[in-house]
């Protein structure tokens, strides 16, 4: 039905790969999405009727996990560029598993918070907390989807370092670092502005 997509190669007068650049532009719009949510949070908090509560302790563990996964992701990227097949396969799988572990821990965190009596509806502070962390988890889920594709490719395709694949690994690495940094920002925000 749909013929093959024409691959748009960058002209040799531009330095960045257009697909990687598109990803960065897309990440700018994600920054605006969370920027809007966190500024709405600040505005609403200033208007009063705000429940103060602490970030569930499980979130500190999940933060350690997601930071660690960023490290393994970066190592996987380096291994791929150096054509180290074994290291790459192991590291990309590790990143994928750590990503899943992050989501499981987030779920634990939400349950802990709910157990402490902070639910979605009662106070807007709680609504904001769940809204922001859920939407972050959704963006992690997108990254996990891409990681899953990479894991399947890594274990099913013949290992070959091509420009095309290098670019894909590069894009995945950038996105994964992005959602990691985004989480660290959100956590610090939620700890200090409550």
């Amino acid at each position: 039905m749909i013929a093959q997509e024409v691959k748009m190669e960058s002209n040799n007068f531009s330095r960045v790969n257009p697909q990687l650049f598109s990803l960065w532009v897309g990440m700018a719009s994600i920054v605006m999405l969370f920027g809007a949510m966190t500024s709405a949070y600040i505005v609403k908090k200033g208007a009063g009727n705000w429940l103060e509560f602490s970030v569930p302790s499980v979130f500190y563990i999940s933060t350690a996990v997601i930071v660690l996964s960023s490290v393994t992701m970066h190592a996987a990227r380096n291994a791929f560029r150096r054509s180290q097949e074994g290291a790459y396969k192991f590291l990309i799988l590790a990143t994928f598993i750590l990503g899943l572990a992050f989501l499981v821990l987030q779920y634990q965190g939400w349950s802990q918070l709910y157990g402490n009596g902070v639910d979605l509806k009662t106070n807007v502070a709680g609504s904001f907390f769940y809204l922001i962390t859920w939407f972050h988890a959704a963006h992690i889920l997108g990254g996990i989807g891409a990681l899953l594709a990479s894991v399947i490719n890594a274990y099913s395709l013949k290992f070959k370092v091509t420009d095309h694949r290098k670019n894909r690994v590069e894009m995945l690495t950038h996105y994964w670092h992005f959602v990691d940094v985004l989480w660290v920002y959100l956590l610090i925000f939620l700890i200090y502005i409550k």
Binding site: N11, F13, F21
Partner: peptide, 11 residues
């Protein structure tokens, strides 16, 4: 995303 990338990269 497309318009921005195209203008900046494919001139």
């Amino acid at each position: 995303i497309n318009y921005i990338t195209t203008v900046l990269n494919l001139r």
